[in-house]
Amino acid sequence: MNHLFEYVLRLGDDSLILGHRLSEWCGHGPVLEEDIAMTNIALDLVGQANSLLEYAANVEGKGKTADDLAFLRIDKEYRNLILVEQPNVDFGHTMMRQFLFDAYRKILFEKLLESGDEQIAAIAAKSLKETKYHLKHSSEWVIRLGDGTEESHRRIQNALDTLWRYTEELFYSDEVDESLRASGVLPDLSSLKQEWTNYVHAVLNEATLEIKEETWYFQNGRQGYHSEHLGYILAELQFMQRAYPGMEW
């Protein structure tokens, strides 16, 4: 297994699939300002996916492009977190999903600035700027909805209860991470979980929300075992490339 390829693919697929989910909101947001914000975040994520998958394709060295990787793999070859493929449900679920992910991504990109791989460090630097804004936006909404009305509190608490089971996967680590750590591509990420927990707890606390610890956490996305939702995402995402193979668009 090419560990660097695998690692970059994981980062790229997270951006690709979450960008897809967010873009489903386009034209249906709760206020026009949020249509603009969510579309903008989706656009950032698609941009990150493009940079990351382009790099992954180079690392793989089989002459593929970012588009080949984005559009022409089968479901088991996607490496994204199960969290990011979860459906939008309502604005509360969407913002909670975004918040849990953004907090992880921001801390991760800060650490990846120290990556021994120049390309990863450069993509992290560019993406970090965007992610800081995404996290500010999603944190503010989690607080507003948590401490807003009875209904908004109930909805966002429900979102937290539903999505918490997918958070352990944010810190999933296997031989890919270990070997890249040994070769200096990855910096020390051991404090990632603690830093994430501190930040997330502080925001949830301000939002008057409670974490209900789970007895089971889902974390098979990195190995290519996904929820049922991914298949439908891919059916849309890949439609054109599958229906009209090999054409320029």
């Binding site: 873009s23 489903e24 603009i36 656009l43």
Partner: peptide
């Protein structure tokens, strides 16, 4: 917006997202 999730490649997807975002901005 109907075609954003089915855009045929990443570049077209990004351009379409940017365009629809502009339209929301014009509305505003």
């Amino acid at each position: 917006g109907n075609w954003i999730t089915r855009a045929p490649n990443l570049r077209r997807k990004a351009v379409l997202l940017a365009k629809v975002q502009d339209e929301a901005g014009h509305g505003l």
